[in-house]
């Protein structure tokens, strides 16, 4: 009927606005010409191939992967115990602790990068890579705590008491009973953390040095110098990667309820 048609069109137009540009990027990257144009001048895969040849892209991809995986694991190692303590104990200063841990969400990334550069890297001789690692860990930590907490809150705490009464130690109860039941929350936290960290730009703006650049920063500086479609091709590839991860996560975890 009429209202149904109207409602469908609103959804389609919105989705077109949100997702359409990616279609254009994918096509622009397929161009056979040397400049970004749309529609593309002929079709070729040469720019997609070039992405893999650019050395700096490879190095920065590796750094971004390291930060995303390592930083997220570190954040989970810090965040899971914190989330557990917040949901299961009446700890003193609970509100303060929660505020501190959540603060990185409010503090703009560019400031974090600058602050770490001025007060960790320069005076304390931290390497840029370590500073980046610390910054990414702190940035992912609030998400890790939030997602794991919501998983824990859905889990009744008397299960742990039951496990203890059946002979488990407290740590044992956590490993045998809690962990298996928050597994999907932890995985979701990992994926959310990975994606957040991998796509993070502002933190790394100041925190980059010779040979130490995250992928998005590398793409930005590449764009400033050249206007060829390889960045479009790379963007398209990254988009595919994200889509694949999210698709799989949604399929197995119902990821969207954690976002």
């Amino acid at each position: 009927m009429n209202s149904k048609l109207a409602s469908r069109s609103i959804i389609v137009i919105t989705l077109l606005f949100l997702i359409g540009p990616f279609g254009i990027i994918i096509l622009a990257g397929l161009s056979a010409g040397d400049f970004m144009t749309f529609p593309p001048d002929g079709i070729s895969l040469k720019w997609y191939a070039k992405v893999f040849e650019v050395k700096s892209f490879r190095a920065s991809f590796a750094l971004s992967m390291f930060l995303a995986i390592g930083g997220t694991i570190a954040a989970l190692l810090l965040g899971i115990p914190a989330a557990y303590a917040i949901s299961r104990y009446k700890i003193p200063f609970a509100e303060t602790i929660k505020t501190i841990v959540a603060a990185p969400i409010i503090v703009p990334g560019i400031i974090v990068g600058l602050a770490l550069l001025r007060y960790l890297v320069v005076p304390l001789n931290f390497t840029v890579t370590i500073a980046l690692f610390l910054a990414h860990t702190a940035l992912v930590l609030p998400y890790a705590v939030r997602v794991v907490s919501s998983s824990l809150n859905n889990l009744r705490s008397d299960m742990e008491e039951a496990a203890v009464l059946l002979g488990c130690s407290r740590v044992g109860a956590f490993i045998r009973v809690v962990l298996p039941n928050i597994r999907s929350g932890v995985l979701a936290a990992f994926i959310l953390g990975f994606v957040t960290s991998f796509n993070q730009v502002p933190v790394s703006l100041f925190l980059s040095g010779p040979g130490v650049r995250t992928l998005p920063i590398d793409m930005l500086s590449y764009m400033e110098m050249t206007y060829d479609p390889s960045v479009a091709a790379l963007s398209a590839l990254l988009a595919f990667l994200s889509v694949a991860i999210v698709f799989i996560a949604e399929k197995f975890l119902g990821f969207s309820r954690y976002v």
């Binding site: 009744r156 008397d158 299960m159 008491e161 039951a162 496990a163 009464l165 009973v177 039941n181």
Partner: peptide, 10 residues
């Protein structure tokens, strides 16, 4: 042994 009100099954 304790049988919880909520059963607390795993």
């Amino acid at each position: 042994g304790l049988v919880f009100q909520s059963y607390a099954l795993f």
